[in-house]
Nucleic acid binder design. Structure first.
Lengths: 135, 135
DNA sequence: ATAAAGTCCACTAACTTGGTGGGGTGTTTT
DNA sequence: AAAACACCCCACCAAGTTAGTGGACTTTAT
């Protein structure tokens, strides 16, 4: 399941996608419009900034804005950043791989199955962007 | 991600699938062969029994065994029982549904996307059984 | 200078995960 | 009948994660 943090991140990013190219948006505005706890949102946006997804401007007239256009930001990128692995097992993860102890991956039925699940999921989230979230 | 508990459950169930129709298997045997902490495994097997997946026999010659044949036990059933929801959002879950507050499901881009992910995942885990985990 | 707005650090309550310990209950064998 | 066997059940625990909060600091515009 996606954490609340991830859901907040997507809400905020969707909002910023709608306002893309309209200049900086206040954290407080996003928090109010999307009903996200202000201080928590602060952390989230900062994290997205450090990951090069958002940029910000301080002082009057400042705020947050998308660093790239919405169709260039993949859903999978946001999930991995805020939520963590997309795979259901570490031994099957592309970005968070850890080998299975007590299970040789060559002959593990669960391993093979979870690769299929991973690929089916990636097929979707790697090919959708913030643009697709705006309806 | 699947919890360690879920991974243990699948290891144990795979082992019991291999020994299907060979009579009861000791918890301690499963624990030793699959390297699962004994007491933890006890809890897991009991839970699987209460869910009608396993059955058990007490006293000498006792142990655990599959209640149905391996090809009748779906992977999805086990995941839902031990791990919880398969969906990435509560508002998209078939078995653990909770409505989204602050997000009308009619017009939520993330909602629609996560339905696609859910269906792609279900397509796999609903159509695989314990039999498929034995290689 | 002052106010606006993001940055950073540290802390916390509640919950979940991954266990462990010990006694109780039912079955089989002797 | 009693001992041995093996599952059943309850309660507890440490560590980590989640979902925040509070307060001081820095940068920028006017």
């Amino acid at each position: 399941m996606l954490s609340k943090k991830s859901q907040y991140a997507f809400k905020a990013l969707t909002y910023l996608s709608e306002k893309f190219n309209e200049g900086p948006v206040l954290i407080s505005e996003i928090a109010r419009k999307k009903k996200i706890p202000l201080k928590f949102l602060e952390n989230i946006l900062l994290e997205l900034k450090k990951a090069d997804i958002l940029d910000s401007k301080k002082g009057k007239g400042g705020g947050y804005f998308l660093k790239k256009s919405p169709e260039k930001i993949k859903v999978s990128t946001v999930i991995r950043l805020i939520n963590g692995p997309i795979s259901m097992l570490p031994c099957v993860s592309l970005y968070f791989y850890e080998r299975c102890k007590n299970c040789n991956e060559k002959s593990c039925g669960l391993h093979d199955l979870m690769i299929q699940v991973r690929d089916a999921t990636l097929e979707i989230v790697e090919n959708r962007t913030l643009k697709d979230l705006v309806v």
